[in-house]
Computed example of a mutant assay.
Amino acid sequence: MGLPAIDSYPMPGSSVLPRPHVSWRIDPARCALLVHGMQNHFVGAFPAGRSPVVELVDNIVALRELAGALGLPVVFSAESTGQRPGRRGLMAEVWDSGTGHEPDAAAIIEPLVPRPGEHLLSNVRHNAFLRSHLGRLLRSEGRDQLIVCGVYAHRGVLLTAADAFMNDIQPFIVADAVADLSAEEHSMALRWAARSGVVCSTAALLRDLLLHRGRRNT
């Protein structure tokens, strides 16, 4: 099947975000940032220079910069190139060969290239926890909150957030730092994510991280 063509659509604003079912508050001492699937192959499917990809990249860059400044673990999850059909399992029947065999296709996009000290995990399923050591990494860092951003909202982002919840890790899904195949699927993913996590805007999350750090330093 491969990736369908993605039309431009407006990134959702904070006024239309679903109401959370939980009252969790982000804590820089407890959280890590996961940037999921921000590879040339997947990001390149969006219309360049238009919504939602412009806001997607800008907002993830802002999250990554503050995470680094606050000492949060920053984790990138990405599909590797040249996966055998047997390794991909049923994924090969639905989404062909993923990123294919070209290294450039599997590379993280230029504005988000991982830096020394950041983590790059290879994943073979949409769920970043499955068949990776993401869970062990978070436990070793003493982190029980996970900020999730990247693509695609109704696949990797939603499945990863759900698995975090199932493993007693509080997921924070950043509504305008994820994108999807359509506005409808984006909105659907946020509604589902709000049932077992906090759906928030980039601006609100950045503000809360800074406010929490300020309270701890006073």
Rank of each mutant, 00 (worst) to 15 (best):
A92Q: 08
V94M: 14
V94Y: 08
W95A: 14
W95H: 15
D96W: 09
S97L: 05
S97G: 05
G98K: 05
T99V: 14
G100R: 00
H101S: 03
E102P: 00
D104P: 04
D104G: 00
D104C: 07
A105Y: 00
A105K: 00
A105C: 01
A106R: 05
A106W: 07
I108L: 09
I109W: 00
E110N: 01
P111S: 13
L112K: 04
V113P: 01
V113S: 02
P114M: 07
P114T: 11
R115V: 05
R115I: 09
H119Y: 13
H119I: 13
L120I: 11
L120E: 04
L120K: 10
S122E: 10
N123W: 08
N123F: 12
V124L: 09
H126L: 15
N127F: 14
A128C: 14
A128Y: 06
F129G: 02
R131Y: 15
R131K: 09
S132M: 12
S132R: 08
H133E: 04
L134K: 00
G135A: 06
G135K: 03
G135I: 11
R136C: 01
L137W: 00
R139M: 10
R139F: 02
E141Y: 14
E141M: 14
G142V: 12
G142K: 09
R143K: 03
D144L: 05
D144C: 01
Q145L: 12
Q145I: 13
L146Y: 00
L146K: 03
L146N: 02
C149R: 02
C149V: 08
V151R: 02
Y152V: 15
A153C: 04
A153Q: 00
H154L: 13
R155H: 13
G156S: 07
G156M: 10
V157R: 05
L158S: 10
L159K: 12
L159C: 09
L159W: 12
T160H: 03
T160C: 02
T160I: 08
A161P: 04
A162W: 13
A162L: 14
A162G: 11
D163F: 08
D163A: 08
A164L: 05
A164M: 03
A164W: 06
F165C: 06
F165T: 09
F165Y: 12
F165M: 08
M166Y: 11
M166F: 10
M166C: 14
N167A: 09
N167K: 12
N167M: 07
N167H: 02
D168F: 03
D168A: 07
I169Q: 00
Q170S: 12
Q170M: 09
Q170H: 04
F172K: 04
F172E: 10
I173M: 06
V174P: 00
A175W: 11
A177N: 00
A177G: 07
A177V: 06
A177H: 03
V178A: 03
A179K: 02
D180M: 01
S182D: 07
S182F: 11
A183I: 08
A183T: 11
E184K: 07
E185P: 03
E185M: 13
E185W: 08
E185K: 11
E185S: 03
H186D: 04
H186C: 04
S187K: 13
M188V: 12
A189K: 06
A189C: 11
L190S: 10
R191Q: 15
W192D: 11
W192E: 13
W192G: 12
A193R: 10
R195G: 15
